[in-house]
Design a binder for these strands. Sequence first.
DNA 1: AAACAAGGATTACGGCAGTAATCGTTGCTT
DNA 2: AAGCAACGATTACTGCCGTAATCCTTGTTT
Lengths: 132, 132
Amino acid sequence: MKSVPRISETEWEVMKVLWAKAPLAAGEIIDALVAVDRTWHPKTAKTLLNRLVKKKALGFKTEGRAYLYRPLIKESECVAAASESFLDRVFGGSLAPMLAHFAQHRKLSADEVRELRRLLKEESAGTGKAKE
Amino acid sequence: MKSVPRISETEWEVMKVLWAKAPLAAGEIIDALVAVDRTWHPKTAKTLLNRLVKKKALGFKTEGRAYLYRPLIKESECVAAASESFLDRVFGGSLAPMLAHFAQHRKLSADEVRELRRLLKEESAGTGKAKE
DNA sequence: AAACAAGGATTACGGCAGTAATCGTTGCTT
DNA sequence: AAGCAACGATTACTGCCGTAATCCTTGTTT
């Protein structure tokens, strides 16, 4: 098992940038962060890059005087880990209550509904075990 | 706006006990926690109770020499807050990708699929109160 | 009354997170 | 060459979190 390092809230923002596009130099990453949220301070971003490198969530290779960062862990792994943890903590690990919550709280758009229907169809179709 | 205080991972365990049944004395809460996870230490639980009181997540009234604790914030509010935050952070705020993730990663049981279908039906039908 | 027991209050302490500022190095500019 | 600018490294500081231990108060027991 890989057991992804724990990625904090703000660190996640940084990771998102690099999951979207990599490798990137620190400056480019900072630009991307600022583009999303004006309040990002370059120094803060640098600190987070260092921490993420220390955590082995990011790696880099030197390119001239600067670094090019790239993710060492996959977004899908982090998403899975965060989702598990969230589901366990908030909904005791069971899906149905969670789905009910989201379905009721945040009204789905018609498109989303359609998309989900499609997913459910796949789900109950092949996928081995779910029989209908 | 209420803006529920931020409830940490372990604090959440404590809250769950009181959301399930309240009011309860510290001893009862600790018993409940231990029942779920043997490793809970009474002192640790007491610390958390204090912190939750300080955060205004819990209140208490004295009953003889002991306290009776009760939640000051509703589970539904906390669930909503945690869900929002999770959805934003991990899935950029959009439901469909999240549901897709869960649908694909944790194979839904036939029952869950049916349940979700039912929810979607309601969704696309009157959506309860919004319009209708 | 003295000591104990039960429960709350206070104190502790290392680690992570958020948020930066300062230090150090090195190529570039004047 | 000297200083500046760009970039990474190091240092900082506060607050929250996990995890308790110790202290204090007061009812209870011998």
